[in-house]
Amino acid sequence: MKKMTGAYTYLTVLLIALLSYNDMMAQNTAFYPGKLWFDNNQRLINAHGGGILYHDGQYYWFGEHKGEHSNAAWVGVTCYSSSDLYNWQDEGVALAVKKDDKSPIAAGSTIERPKVIYNAATKKFVMYFHLELKGQGYDAAHVGVAISDTPKGPYQLIKNSRVNAGKWPLNVTTAQQTATDKPEDYQWWTKEWTKAIENGLFVRRDFESGQMSRDMTLFVDDDNKGYHIYSSEDNLTLHIAELTEDYLDYTGKYIRIAPAGHNEAPAIFKKDGRYFMITSGCTGWDPNAARLLTADNILGEWTLHPNPCVGKDAELTFHSQSTYILPIAGKKDAFIFMADRWKPSNPIDGRYVWFPIVFEDGMPVLKWFDKWDLSVFD
C-alpha cells in the first residue's frame, strides 16, 4: 500500500503539473479588461501608454517598459506582435535607452506614449514619443522621432525637439499673435489667467522655442497624410500638427483644440468621413471622466461632447485613461479603445483596459465588459 500510495502521489503531482502547464500554454480567445495579461513567455506584457501598428497581416504593440519602482525609462520602448490581438509574442526592445547621460534618451529619461506609423513611400517605420530629458523633470516637453527599416526595430533616434518653432497655429488670430501680456502678469488658475490661455498666452511664450509636446498619438488619414496630436501649453491645450510626406518633420500647419480645456491622453479615429477623439482631463495618475471631441476636418473646428462612457464608474473611465484607438483590420467600423490603469506605486502592474467602441445615434459609446471577443463586431 505504501508503494501504491507513493505511486498515486507521484501521478497526482504529475497531473497537476501537466494541467498547470496546459493552462499556461493555452491560447487566449478573449479580452479581460483590467486583468493580468501575459505574453508568449508567460511574462506580464510590459507595453504601457502604447499604440498598435498593423503591417503585413501582423499587429505590433509598442509601449513603455515599466519597472516596479519607477516610471522613468530604464529599458526603453518594447514591442510585441500578434496575428489575433489576444495572444502576444515578445519581440524585445524596439528603442533602447542609452548608457551615455549626454544622450537625449539616456537611461533614466522619460519616454512615454510611443506610437509607430509606416511610410509606404520611404519604406521606413517612424516612431514618435513624448520625451523628457534626464534630470529636467517635465520641463523639456519634447517629441522624439526614431526610424527603423523593420516594424520590430531596432529604432534609431534621429531628432528631438519641441514642435513648430516660429510657426503660428492656423486658428490663432492676428490680435492673439500680437498681444503683449506675459505669463507673469497673471496668477495661475484664476478666470483672468484661463482667459489669457485661451487667447494664446502660452503659444506666444513658446513661439520661438517651439510648442510643448507631452501626451501624444499619431494618425494617418485616408490620403496618407500624417498628423501628430499632442497635449501642449502645459497640458492646457491640444494641438494637431500636420507632418511632412516622409513623416519625419512638420509642414508648419497646426491648430489648437479646446484652448485652456486641460486635455491629455488623446486617441483618435475616423468613421464615415468624421473624426472622433477621446481624451481625458488632467488629474495626475488618477483617473477622471473621458471627453469626446468631433470634427469634419482634422484641421478644422472641433466640438466637445459629453463623456462617451456609460454605466458604473463611467465618471472615472472605468479607472483607466485612453492611450490609443485601434481600427480592426478586415472589419468595417470596428474599433478598439485602448486604455491603461496607471499604478505609480508599482508601475509594471498597470493593467490594460480594452473595449469595443459601440455606436449609438452615430456617436461612440464605451461600456464595461468583463470579457469580450472580436465577434462583438459581427
Rank of each mutant, 00 (worst) to 15 (best):
A17P: 00
V116P: 09
N288S: 15
I348C: 01
V358K: 12
A7F: 15
L44S: 06
G67Y: 08
L299T: 09
K182W: 13
D101C: 05
F337E: 00
T78P: 03
L316G: 03
Y250R: 02
G63W: 02
G76W: 06
T180V: 14
H130L: 09
K115A: 07
S20R: 02
A107E: 12
F318L: 05
V75N: 08
Y275S: 04
W372P: 03
D56F: 08
F355E: 04
A7V: 15
L36C: 01
K3Y: 14
H239Y: 13
L304K: 12
A73Q: 04
A289T: 09
T190P: 01
W188N: 08
T194G: 10
Y8F: 15
P327M: 06
Y230W: 12
L293D: 01
Y254L: 03
E91S: 11
T174V: 13
G67D: 13
G144N: 04
D100A: 10
I147V: 15
D340H: 09
Y275D: 03
L374R: 01
M127K: 07
Q42P: 01
L236P: 00
G273V: 07
V358H: 12
I298M: 05
K271W: 10
K270M: 04
V143I: 15
I147M: 03
G362R: 06
D272Q: 13
R341S: 11
D139P: 00
G200V: 02
M277C: 08
D181A: 00
G350I: 06
D296C: 07
L157Q: 03
N288R: 06
D206F: 14
T78L: 13
F335S: 00
N263C: 08
L243R: 00
E132L: 08
N288Y: 11
P104K: 09
T5Y: 15
W372M: 04
M127Q: 11
Y250G: 00
K35W: 14
Y10R: 10
W74I: 11
I16D: 00
K123E: 14
Y118E: 01
W188R: 08
I158E: 13
V145D: 04
G210I: 09
R341V: 05
S345D: 15
T29Q: 12
D181P: 00
E208C: 03
P266A: 07
P151T: 10
V97H: 01
W188D: 06
H319Q: 10
F129L: 15
Q156P: 00
G135A: 05
S280E: 10
A146C: 06
L293K: 02
N41C: 10
I117V: 15
A146G: 03
N22Y: 14
K332H: 13
P114Y: 13
I111Q: 02
W37H: 05
A7S: 14
L170Q: 10
L85P: 01
N297S: 13
G311I: 05
D101Q: 11
G261I: 01
F62L: 07
M216Y: 06
K159L: 12
P306W: 08
